[in-house]
């Protein structure tokens, strides 16, 4: 490190210190994030996380040094994920929550030619502020159902003009900007997170909350079924247990044609329905007034 400039040495020392003082160390890509959103992000995470933008090489050295000094070899692997304009985000926040927070804090940005969209780009149906002009022809050329109504360009119905993963062309960028549609997202892209000997990648961290909701409901249904089916009463299931027993008893009585005040309606109903169903097949002159009603 003898030839290393003084500022670089200080920078690495500072980065190493930050990495060593937080349990959760994330690598984020700040390339393409303008200064203003980045400072807004810093404000948002103030007190919860420290964001340090630096050169990729210095970040790599700092991560490896911190790993060595802490005796945590797994931490060094985080350096493998450095790409783009990497920055260190050090925090106490659980990696999964951190990913969620970063995703939620992304803000929409105007279309740029050559940019890849992460979500489908939909042009909503309805009137637009655009006056008739050559743009209408360009829209129609892309399949957008644009028409002129009352002197304004109107979109007939919602139209997906670009699928997720698609590249914005110069022409589309012009149209989207004219329509005021911002199809891009600006924010910190999480590259990888380290905590407790594990490096988490976005693929792992992108959890689907609805899956967990489903599992919760499934678990509850399991508990409910177990309780009711084994007649082990709990506050939440005692009513269902009583109902199950009652319905079972009623079923048996109805099936057996054993008339009680609880079953008379069902039993007579069956007989009556059988009669009505048969009556459907009978010629009209056989039906008496009651059946004809």
């Amino acid at each position: 490190m003898a030839h290393v400039a003084e500022w670089k040495r200080k920078e690495v020392e500072e980065l190493t210190r930050v990495i060593k003082s937080y349990p959760v160390i994330a690598l984020v890509d700040v390339a393409g994030v303008p200064a203003y959103p980045l400072s807004k992000m810093r404000d948002k995470f103030r007190g919860k996380a420290i964001i340090r933008v630096s050169r990729n090489t210095l970040i790599e050295i700092a991560i490896k040094r911190a790993a060595q000094e802490l005796g945590k070899p797994e931490l060094a692997k985080l350096a493998d994920y450095i790409q783009g304009g990497a920055a260190i985000l050090a925090t106490d926040i659980n990696p999964f929550k951190l990913y969620k927070l970063l995703e939620e804090s992304k803000t929409p940005a105007p279309a740029k030619p050559g940019a890849v969209v992460t979500k489908d780009v939909v042009i909503p149906g309805g009137p637009t502020p655009i006056a008739p002009g050559p743009l209408v022809g360009e829209m129609q050329a892309l399949g957008i159902p644009a028409r002129i109504e009352k002197g304004k360009v109107t979109i007939q119905n919602d139209y997906t003009v670009l699928k997720a993963g698609g590249v914005i062309t110069e022409q589309l960028a012009r149209i989207l900007n004219a329509l005021g549609i911002e199809p891009l997202e600006v924010g910190l892209n999480l590259l990888a997170v380290y905590e407790d000997g594990i490096v988490y990648t976005p693929g792992v961290l992108a959890i689907d909350p609805s899956e967990y909701i489903n599992m919760l409901q499934q678990a509850y249904v399991h508990a409910f079924n177990l309780s009711v089916n084994t007649a082990y009463p709990t506050k939440q299931t005692i009513e269902a247990i009583i109902q199950k027993a009652f319905l079972g008893a009623k079923n048996v009585a109805v099936e057996a044609g054993y008339v009680t005040k609880e079953t008379v309606e069902d039993i007579f109903g069956r007989a009556l329905r059988a009669v009505l169903l048969i009556a459907q097949n009978l010629p009209g002159e056989l039906l008496d007034e009651k059946t004809k009603e």
Binding site: K261, V264, E265, D266, F268, G269, L272, R273, L276
Partner: peptide, 12 residues
């Protein structure tokens, strides 16, 4: 004590 007409009407 069962009102059969009523029961039948409901059942139908």
């Amino acid at each position: 004590g069962v009102n059969i007409d009523e029961v039948i009407q409901k059942a139908a």
